[in-house]
């Protein structure tokens, strides 16, 4: 039985816009991730997925809620400080925009070696450069890239460098915030396979945030669907795609294009009525591991 790696309990976060207005980016979200699984978080733009990721990584301090990583409450500053080193090395994040997540003035070698040099870890392959070279080859780039600057690389190459940087610390949890959103399809496939390989061979758990549903179906073990800051449904992948319960999930899944052109043309998709969306309600477990946001009194 694999234990629970990440336990998010009733996470809420708000953003202030000027003096009068407040945006509730994340509203009472709870879910769990087990060790060694790939958890997908999907939703449209603005649903709060990135905010959840950043709260988990302690970029933001959440307005309410608890996040337990291996049992440690990372929102509590004292607990965080106590386990700081472990938390900072075993959790890594990959951002969506590879241009801004790499410092333009650092070479690839320095970028990949940065986490190791921060934590003063002795590189297992001799020198930091050799270590960087190994990580690069792991993501499919050869050592001639070591002295290049990010501006000299293509988008796919930059994202691979970012992944190499994250993987160099052999993390237990990898948070991937829409890592392939701005890349072309063949590169996307390479990166997804890379992530899968990581998970299978090295037991790395991945929190995969995306809005491409077919990709999520391919890669993830469990999926959570978010809408306007609320988590509306969580289930193992097969169960979710076969038997969606929440109206939003149904509409979302019905919009996935089918490769067969004739079938695609004859297909009709369901519309989601936004005004019918009910923010109130709790997560109800309708099947083992399958939770849906529902009002108590409805069936």
């Amino acid at each position: 039985m694999s234990e629970i790696l990440l336990d998010v309990q009733r996470l809420s976060h708000v953003f202030k816009l000027g003096k009068y207005a407040v945006i509730k980016a994340v509203d009472d979200v709870s879910f769990q991730m087990k060790k060694g699984e790939i958890f997908g978080l999907v939703g449209e733009s603005g649903s709060g997925k990135s905010t959840v990721a950043r709260c988990i990584m302690n970029v933001y301090k959440p307005a309410a809620g608890k996040i337990l990583y291996n049992g440690i409450d990372v929102c509590d500053s004292r607990a965080f400080r106590k386990h700081r080193k472990m938390l900072e090395s075993s959790r890594q994040i990959i951002f969506q925009d590879s241009t801004s997540s790499l410092n333009q003035r650092m070479t690839v070698e320095k970028i990949i070696a940065e986490p190791m040099s921060i934590h003063h870890i002795k590189p297992p392959r001799g020198s930091l450069r050799a270590e960087a070279e190994f990580q690069l080859s792991y993501v499919g780039m050869d050592s001639s890239y070591l002295d290049k600057y990010p501006t000299e690389l293509s988008g796919g190459q930059r994202q691979r460098v970012a992944i190499a940087r994250a993987l160099s610390m052999e993390p237990e949890l990898l948070v991937a915030d829409e890592p392939v959103a701005s890349l072309d399809v063949s590169i996307q496939a390479q990166i997804i396979n890379l992530l899968r390989h990581c998970n299978e061979q090295h037991g790395c758990s991945i929190l995969f945030i995306a809005h491409d549903l077919s990709m999520v179906e391919y890669l993830c073990n469990r999926v959570g669907v978010m809408y306007h800051g609320k988590l509306v449904e969580v289930a193992p992948t097969a169960a979710l795609y076969a038997n969606p319960q929440h109206p939003y999930t149904k509409a979302l899944l019905s919009a996935i294009p089918v490769p067969d052109p004739i079938a695609e043309r004859n297909r009709s998709h369901i519309d989601f009525d936004e005004t019918a969306f009910d923010r109130e309600g709790t997560m109800v477990e309708i099947a083992p591991g399958h939770w849906v946001l529902r009002k108590e009194d409805s069936q």
């Binding site: 970029v59 900072e88 951002f95 997540s101």
Partner: peptide, 16 residues
Amino acid sequence: SEYVVASRCMGGRFFH
């Protein structure tokens, strides 16, 4: 900018 965020996530302190 994100690389500063990334750096702080992976443990970089103020002076680093």
